[in-house]
Design a protein around this nucleic acid. Structure first.
Lengths: 209, 209
DNA sequence: GGTCAACCGGAGAGGTTCTCCGTATCGTAG
DNA sequence: CTACGATACGGAGAACCTCTCCGGTTGACC
């Protein structure tokens, strides 16, 4: 599904050379490793070294750090959006939104919060606006339906939800100190979104899977 | 109130030299400026330069970046804790907690999120455990009272609240893209804490007091 | 096989964090 | 007032990072 270049229009650009494509893959693979080990602030030099290429090669393929980050997370984003579309057909609109937000939380926490960092930092111009766009579109569909067919409050926006989930991801990642379980915090937020906590049921995810 | 060294035990340590104390103050002042301009990731070299001291002097006084951060925020933390104690006497327990959490949110957002960064990153061993400790103590008092005399849910912990507020601060800071208003998000969370949204009342600080 | 554009790699500029140690200064004792 | 020792200063410098530039190499096509 990851079309390397535009699909519809005339490909005035010839396909990239084989070694270039190979190096790109090597870089993404190395980045996946290194980011997972050292977090989103990892040394790009180290990534280039581990990929077996020079720093120049890395920067030619990925001028910005966030470019590399999005490349690493692209699969995950695809999955997330696909799951959103799938959940649009679920019977329970509230539950669909709830489940997807849990998935999104997992995404935002992936690789020491780089998903969240990406979503927030590169939100506007830098990096890949397409990335945020897709997430927001996916969430919009689910939220709209939860408002219509479910019990979601009308005054809560997609932006609210995204920021809250990203916030949970950011504030619970990195610290070696064991904080609250992220899904627990999300459930707490969802209690507000869906009109408050059911009595006798704590902010506990009854396993959304 | 800021006792420079321990108060009770025998002061085996003589008071610091005058120039040392002076340089420390200069460094904190410079750090306040530079952090405000460039955020919590600002160059420590630049801070030393602006304070008119060498890098070595900076690192002797503040071995860790977070040490400098806590020193800069100490006043603010004092104020925050004092306000918590003051609010313990307020009539409306719920409102007291609500107000204080808004103050805390302001704190966490101060200086481009360095308050929040500090609270989360240095949460455990590094930096000043005393700092987090005081915040948590302050919040504990207010939350306990809101549970007893107010309507706060019993299953929400101080840690939950701290992480949620810090999360809001982190996810709404830095991006040049205008997101949701942080206080709005906090009100949304509070709706859950206080038993869900009243019908017809959005996530707005209607100030029930 | 030859040609050329595309691509690679690494040297290097300029930034950062943090350390080390000779030197200057403070505070005090004489 | 002076001399002395502990304390603190400051900047040189090592190690690292990001990012650029350009000579040399290599893949793709004729």
């Amino acid at each position: 599904m990851t079309t390397e270049y535009g699909s519809g229009a005339a490909p005035a650009v010839p396909p990239r050379r084989l070694d270039a494509r190979l190096n790109r893959e090597r870089l993404v693979a190395a980045a996946r490793e290194v980011f997972a080990e050292a977090g989103p602030g990892a040394s790009l030099n180290e990534i280039a070294r581990r990929a077996g290429v020079g720093p120049g090669t890395l920067y030619r393929h990925f001028p910005d750090r966030t470019d590399l980050l999005t490349a690493v997370l692209r699969d995950r984003i695809e999955t997330l959006c696909a799951r959103a579309e799938h959940l649009l057909d679920a019977r329970d609109a509230d539950d669909a939104l709830r489940r997807w937000l849990h998935d999104f939380l997992d995404h935002a926490r992936a690789n020491q919060g780089m998903g969240g960092a990406l979503l927030v930092e590169t939100a506007s111009a830098a990096g890949d606006p397409d990335c945020r766009r897709r997430i927001v579109d996916a969430a919009s569909g689910l939220l709209d339906r939860a408002r219509r067919d479910g019990t979601a409050r009308a005054d809560v926006t997609v932006d609210d939800l995204v920021h809250l989930v990203v916030g949970i991801a950011l504030s619970t990642t990195g610290g070696e100190r064991a904080g609250p379980e992220p899904p627990r915090l999300l459930e707490l937020v969802l209690d507000a979104v869906f009109g408050g906590p059911r009595p006798g049921r704590g902010p506990r995810p009854g396993s959304p899977g």
